[in-house]
Simulated scan of single mutants.
Amino acid sequence: MRLVIIDNHPLIRRGLVSLFSYSGIMEVLGEATNRKEAINLLQTVKPDIAIVDLRLGDESGIELIKEAIDLGIASKFVILTSSTTEEDFRKAKEIGVAGYLLKEALPEELLHAVQMIGKGRKYYDPTVLDLMMKEKNLPDKPSHVEQLTPKEMEILIELGKGHSNKEISKTLYITEFTVKKHVSQVFAKLGLADRTQAALYANAKGLVKYVINS
């Protein structure tokens, strides 16, 4: 997996280079500190994933990603930030970033997140999802989860991973029609309005557990 790191803080860049290089399955192709350097780097090396700081000094990582997408750069973009504000998270999701990670995350979580994103998944930091859930006053009654059948619980966990009905169908070996039926039942039992709320709920409850591949 080929990466580039776009961050204006030298210590952050060095730390990420060491972390990803140590993994043995990721190669850091280059670094950039601002918009101009970043666009040139992205066009030159064409990485699989670009790790982008939300704020590059006086410049915006969001605007940089928008520009890169407009230029036809096909890399997956991952925001790395200390911001847990809903507005920043919303803007990142709106432009289609593949991940939103916090700089406070543990090294193994960052590695895991990048691995997931490299496989075509999206990854949003659980801390951010938890805060979004609280701000939106989503249901928070343990008894609701206990009402789910084992299959509905599996469905909820898959929703927490951001999987589509088709992906859930393949994972659980059931038809998409059956998945759709279970999803509706999960929404009804938990009082959730849509898949986004279900994902927030599942992650905030700690239902989505991952195993880091060595």
Rank of each mutant, 00 (worst) to 15 (best):
G61L: 03
A113I: 04
P139E: 01
L129A: 00
E135W: 11
A113E: 02
G99A: 08
P107Q: 01
T127W: 09
I49Q: 05
H144A: 11
F77E: 12
L148V: 01
S143W: 09
G96L: 03
E87W: 11
Q43H: 10
Q43S: 14
M116A: 12
S143F: 08
E104K: 08
G118A: 02
E63M: 12
V97Y: 00
S60Y: 06
A98V: 05
T81G: 00
D48H: 11
I49W: 01
T84D: 02
D53G: 06
D125W: 08
A113D: 09
L138Y: 06
V114K: 10
L54S: 03
D125M: 05
T44M: 13
V145H: 09
V52R: 04
I117C: 01
Y124R: 00
Y100A: 01
V52L: 00
P126N: 04
D48E: 15
V78I: 14
P126W: 11
M133K: 13
L106D: 14
G61K: 04
A74W: 08
M116R: 15
S82K: 11
E109P: 13
S75C: 07
K46S: 15
R90Q: 12
E67D: 05
M116V: 09
D53I: 07
K46E: 15
K66M: 11
P47D: 02
S83R: 06
E67S: 05
L54C: 06
A50P: 10
A68G: 03
S75W: 09
S83T: 04
T85Q: 13
P107S: 05
Q43F: 11
S75A: 15
L110W: 10
K76T: 06
T127R: 11
A50S: 09
T84K: 13
H112D: 06
P139F: 00
L102A: 02
L129N: 00
D140W: 10
A92Y: 02
S143D: 12
Y100K: 00
F77G: 09
S83W: 08
M116Q: 15
P47K: 05
I95N: 03
E108K: 12
A74D: 15
V128F: 08
A105Q: 14
A68E: 02
T44C: 08
M133C: 14
I51E: 04
H144M: 12
S75T: 04
K119W: 08
D125T: 11
G120C: 09
K66Q: 14
G99L: 11
I73F: 01
A68Y: 04
P126C: 00
L41D: 06
V114T: 07
E135P: 03
R121E: 15
L131N: 04
D140Q: 14
G57V: 02
S143E: 14
K119V: 01
P142L: 12
L131P: 03
M133Q: 12
E94C: 02
Q147Y: 02
